[in-house]
């Protein structure tokens, strides 16, 4: 029982990340009709916003201590972060909370990156076949990856969660289920965070005029255009919004997975499966499929299940995708006519 509950939590956590990435992918596909293979790179860039922010905060003053020598004969360096010597307590606080605080920096940066990407490259591919779009965005993803590797190296760079949520929560004791159910605080935070972001995106599309116009544009951009609305401009903003969602998913994921240049690619393929299973162009479908596949993947890794079906943990997602596409060719919540012309 404990094991099942823990795997369920794992699934929600993983599902949160899949859903956030798939949500952005679907937004872009639904509005601009572009299959964006560089979306994983946006997730990675978000994570590196947190890394850069942390690196800037921890810039250090280096004082050489000539009395002590290193093993290779140079003076040893004494390093103190500038921020601590300038701001004292506040400085240490900022360093401790660098991951959540970096969200404030990530939002404008990712919005800008998204808009530049759409205006600078992707818009030239609107009327080209999907294959061209995939090639160019995949190429872009590789370029972004290599740039990050050039500046940050290939090794993962650890990012710590704030001290207050470091370690794990004794959920079992909270709910009177015994002491064996512990779960990392930060993963609970991540789940809450992804649920909030998903809810905000839906609220934005559902309850604002801007969102209503975007939804109308997703249905029939031509008619919306004829009503005198510059729908292209709004779609550009939506692309920026998708970049922000992916970026935020990346920022908050850094304490779970020390980021490296390749982390986007690792998520990209899975997210595409999520989008296809959810139904191309369906936002609720993407979220539903994200959580569903996350939970299934976690359960498939249980030793009891692996002893019956060895290796099932590595193929479960694709197996489910095959079954769903065979029985429901448009995915869980796909609409008729999307990518079918």
């Amino acid at each position: 029982m404990d094991a099942i509950l823990l795997q369920f939590l794992n699934g929600l956590d993983k599902g949160g990340a899949y859903a956030l990435i798939a949500l952005g992918l679907t937004l872009v596909f639904g509005t601009l009709g572009v299959v964006n293979f560089a979306h994983g790179a946006l997730f990675m860039l978000g994570a590196f916003c947190a890394v850069t922010f942390n690196k800037l905060l921890s810039l250090e003053q280096v004082v050489l201590d000539e009395t002590k020598k290193t093993a290779w004969g140079t003076a040893t360096e004494i390093r103190t972060p500038y921020i601590e010597s300038w701001f004292g307590e506040l400085g240490s606080f900022l360093l401790d909370y660098s991951v959540p605080v970096s969200i404030l920096v990530t939002i404008p940066v990712m919005l800008l990156i998204g808009i530049v990407m759409e205006r600078g490259l992707i818009k030239h591919f609107y009327n080209r076949p999907h294959a061209d779009q995939i090639l160019v965005t995949f190429g872009l993803a590789i370029v972004i990856q290599e740039i990050i590797k050039h500046y940050f190296g290939a090794n993962p760079i650890p990012q710590a969660a704030p001290d207050i949520v470091d370690g794990s929560a004794n959920i079992g004791a909270l709910f009177g289920l015994g002491d064996n159910i512990v779960y990392p605080w930060w993963r609970l935070v991540y789940f809450g965070f992804s649920a909030t972001i998903i809810a905000s995106v839906f609220a934005f599309l559902q309850f604002t005029t801007y969102g209503m116009v975007v939804r109308a544009g997703m249905r029939d951009s031509e008619t919306v255009g004829m009503l005198g609305i510059n729908i292209q401009k709004r779609f550009t903003v939506v692309f920026g919004l998708a970049a922000v969602v992916a970026g935020l998913a990346g920022v908050m994921y850094t304490p779970i997975l020390p980021p490296d240049y390749h982390m986007g690619m690792d998520f990209l393929v899975l997210s595409f499966v999520v989008v296809v299973v959810g139904g191309m162009g369906s936002l609720p479908g993407a979220v539903l499929a994200g959580f569903m596949l996350g939970i299934l993947q976690s359960f498939a890794s249980m030793t009891e299940i692996k002893s019956i079906f060895p290796g099932i943990d590595q193929i479960i997602i694709y197996l489910v995708a095959v079954v769903i596409l065979l029985t429901m060719p448009r995915g869980l919540m796909g609409r008729e006519g999307v990518m079918e012309e």
């Binding site: 094991a3 823990l6 993983k14 943990d313």
Partner: peptide
Amino acid sequence: GAGDFSQYLTPVLN
């Protein structure tokens, strides 16, 4: 290259 090992780690706990 599994990335997230949570589903392999939780069974260890019990």
